[in-house]
Lab assay of single mutants.
Amino acid sequence: ELVLALYDYQEKSPREVTMKKGDILTLLNSTNKDWWKVEVNDRQGFVPASYVKKLD
């Protein structure tokens, strides 16, 4: 499943990933309501769920 980055996000820990507004990311896990695991540029990590939106 793919998600769209709604905002820029700068990683604050090694478990997170940086994304730019408009990026298309692969959603790996959305079981946590606050932090979703995504893959971007061959890196996996977490981003705030409120910063991304699922693409239909």
Rank of each mutant, 00 (worst) to 15 (best):
E1G: 13
E1L: 12
E1Y: 12
L2M: 11
L2E: 06
L2A: 08
V3N: 01
V3P: 00
L4P: 00
L4T: 08
A5D: 00
A5W: 00
A5P: 01
A5N: 00
A5R: 01
L6K: 05
L6H: 03
Y7L: 10
D8W: 03
D8Y: 04
D8G: 06
D8M: 03
Y9N: 00
Y9H: 04
Y9E: 01
Q10E: 15
E11S: 15
E11M: 12
E11K: 14
K12Q: 14
K12E: 08
K12A: 12
S13W: 06
S13R: 08
S13G: 13
S13K: 07
P14L: 09
P14I: 10
R15H: 13
R15K: 12
E16A: 05
E16T: 08
E16W: 03
E16G: 13
E16V: 05
V17I: 14
V17D: 00
V17Q: 04
V17F: 14
V17W: 05
T18Q: 04
T18E: 04
T18C: 06
M19C: 06
M19W: 01
M19F: 10
M19N: 00
K20N: 09
K20G: 05
K21F: 05
G22R: 03
G22N: 06
G22T: 02
G22M: 03
D23F: 05
I24S: 04
I24W: 06
I24A: 04
I24Y: 07
I24P: 02
L25C: 11
L25G: 14
L25S: 02
T26A: 11
T26S: 11
T26Y: 13
T26F: 12
L27S: 02
L28R: 05
L28D: 01
N29G: 07
N29I: 08
N29Q: 11
N29Y: 06
N29K: 06
S30D: 15
S30C: 11
S30R: 08
S30G: 11
N32K: 07
N32I: 05
N32D: 15
N32V: 05
N32E: 10
K33Y: 08
K33D: 11
D34A: 09
D34G: 08
D34W: 15
D34T: 12
D34Y: 15
W35D: 01
W35V: 03
W35T: 02
W36Q: 01
W36H: 03
K37D: 04
K37A: 08
K37F: 15
K37P: 01
K37M: 15
K37C: 14
K37T: 08
V38F: 00
V38W: 00
E39V: 11
V40T: 15
V40G: 14
N41I: 12
D42T: 10
D42P: 06
Q44H: 09
Q44C: 11
Q44W: 08
G45E: 01
F46T: 03
F46Y: 15
V47T: 02
V47W: 01
P48L: 03
A49M: 04
A49H: 04
A49P: 06
S50M: 10
S50D: 11
V52I: 09
V52H: 01
V52T: 04
V52S: 01
K53R: 12
K53E: 14
K54L: 13
K54D: 05
K54H: 09
K54G: 06
K54N: 07
K54E: 08
L55T: 07
D56T: 12
D56W: 10
D56P: 14
